[in-house]
């Protein structure tokens, strides 16, 4: 059970290749936070229930707390600090701020990852709401987050693709 045996893992983090020596039992969230300095990688439960740890792995939002870092070998990982499309990141930030979708901000990076996925895939609103239901927020009462994403989807539709 000790961490004597380290494995080499390499993945792309926000566009940059990382090569790390990690113990097999460390979660991806732990490694992103403690080794890679990604402050958006946060544990709210460590049990797969809350989604605070959501990061984008190969374009899909996943629970970082449920993935061992070694499982991410070769993956393309994005965190809320640097989503793939800078214009979309700026638009998400703007909409979250405008709609008061942030209170304590602990859940915010996770919801930003979900929002990016929703926008990139142009999900219809009901599916968007279902997708946002993956994550917990205890402060905002969610409807500001839903409003922000609704507006982003509308903007996206207006502009053809991408806000």
């Amino acid at each position: 059970m000790e961490d004597t045996e380290l494995h080499t893992v390499s993945f792309k983090l926000n566009g940059h290749v990382q090569v790390l020596q990690v113990a097999p039992r460390r979660s991806l969230t732990h490694v992103l936070d403690q080794e890679c300095g990604m402050k958006s990688a946060r544990v709210g439960c460590g049990q797969g229930d809350c989604g605070s740890c959501t990061v984008s792995v190969d374009g899909v939002p996943i629970r970082g707390c449920l993935l061992f870092a070694v499982q991410a070998d070769g993956a393309d990982i994005r965190t809320a600090e640097a989503l793939a499309d800078p214009a979309m990141l700026a638009a998400i930030r703007k909409a979250f701020k405008k709609h008061r979708a942030i209170q304590c901000g602990y859940c915010t990076p996770g919801f930003m990852i979900l929002a990016e996925y929703i926008l990139r895939n142009a999900l219809p609103l009901d599916q968007a709401v279902q997708t946002l239901s993956a994550n917990l927020c205890r402060c905002t009462g969610y409807s500001p987050i839903v409003s922000a994403v609704t507006e982003l989807l509308a903007l996206r539709a207006e502009n053809g693709c991408g806000p």
Binding site: M38, S40, R42, K97, I102, G105
Partner: peptide
Amino acid sequence: RLEDDDLLRANTRFVGS
């Protein structure tokens, strides 16, 4: 909110990190 820019950029000081 003055708080939001830091929170949106994960420019944060939560104790865990």
